[in-house]
């Protein structure tokens, strides 16, 4: 075991896979000699060479095309989009091409690509860096969308993503990169994609969340505990496909739920979680399933992030609403 930040755990996962499989290639803007703008690929080019870890021209669309071409010729590309707000430049490659490749070839060709990209607010980035666009990806058949919230989860999920033979979008929340350290095994391990994790057990209300909101929810749960409300916190970890079984089992136990996301109310995946609960467990519900989200505006100017992003206080309020419904 070692104490690692999430970014170190991510680097460790990539190092493990580079070592394990010579078809794994890592590329993107500044991921080579520079080691990535967040140091996620620090030291990897030096250790594995320029044929395995390399920089590309500054063109996200081209990077997506490169990954697809390498994927169908037998490689296992791990491409980086420097910030997920730049997704729009490469939307066709991700949502119009790699997501469809197995289907369009009747199952004869695959694109085993991992798209790594940082996102998320709270660190005062400039425009189009922090936007939560996982909702767009979750609406795309053929993709899996993974969002870890801890160093341990990040390593196991990234190794599983790289080994998956279909495209996986792996989104890394910038605020979580170095915000805390946790125990991470040095040896390899995987965490199954599509499985949620109960980060805190409780019996009164279920909070379903992911990304940075996992920590805000845990903080809210501690405060609520003081008032005698026992909260269960489910970290989805994979936002597409959803781990329906874990969600429903929890809701059937607590009879009350809220869904918490950093994205705007009209975006993200919270509405989907609410719909699934309504379809499958409405008779267990003592109150409507409420959502805690950001307002439906463009992502805020950096200086006003604090008042725009949802936080633990919003979560406490929502839990109290469903408890007192």
């Amino acid at each position: 075991m070692a104490q690692m930040t999430m970014i170190q755990a991510i680097t460790d996962a990539m190092r493990n896979e580079l070592k394990k499989n010579e078809d794994v290639l890592i590329f993107g803007e500044d991921v080579g000699q520079n080691g990535g703008v967040f140091r996620a690929t620090e030291g990897l080019q030096k250790e594995f060479g320029e044929d395995r870890v390399f920089d590309t021209p500054l063109a996200e669309s081209g990077i997506g095309g490169l990954a697809i071409g390498l994927g169908i010729t037998g490689f296992r590309p791990v491409m980086e989009i420097q910030f997920f707000g730049f997704l729009f430049e490469v939307m066709d490659s991700v949502a119009g091409q790699m997501s469809r490749w197995r289907y369009r070839s009747g199952g004869t060709q695959t694109t085993p690509i991992t798209v790594r990209s940082p996102f998320g607010g709270g660190v005062k980035t400039p425009e189009m860096h922090a936007d939560s666009l996982e909702g767009l990806m979750a609406q795309t058949p053929g993709l899996k969308v993974v969002i870890p919230s801890t160093p341990y989860d990040a390593k196991g999920l990234l190794i599983a993503s790289i080994r998956d033979n279909d495209p996986v979008v792996f989104l890394e929340h910038m605020k979580l990169y170095r915000s805390f350290r946790a125990e991470v095994p040095e040896e390899e391990y995987t965490i199954e994609l599509g499985k949620a994790d109960i980060k805190r057990e409780g019996k009164d209300v279920t909070i379903i969340t992911y990304g940075a909101m996992v920590h805000a929810s845990l903080k809210a749960a501690e405060e609520l505990e003081k008032d005698g409300v026992d909260v269960e916190v489910i970290d989805l970890m994979t936002v597409s496909p959803l781990d329906i079984d874990t969600i429903i089992a929890s809701v059937e136990k607590t009879n009350r739920a809220i869904v918490v996301q950093e994205a705007q109310k009209q975006a993200g995946i919270a509405a989907n979680v609410v719909a699934e609960i309504t379809e499958r467990a409405i008779l267990s519900l003592e109150a409507p399933v409420l959502r805690v989200t950001a307002p439906d505006t463009v992502y805020p100017f950096a200086a006003m992030e604090d008042s725009w992003l949802p936080d633990h206080k919003d979560i406490v309020d929502a839990v109290n609403k469903v408890v007192n419904f």
Partner: peptide
Amino acid sequence: IIGAQIIQTAGVALGLKRK
């Protein structure tokens, strides 16, 4: 999707070279 094949070709060609 007109043009998508062009960026993908760069990738396939890199794949052939690396293999």
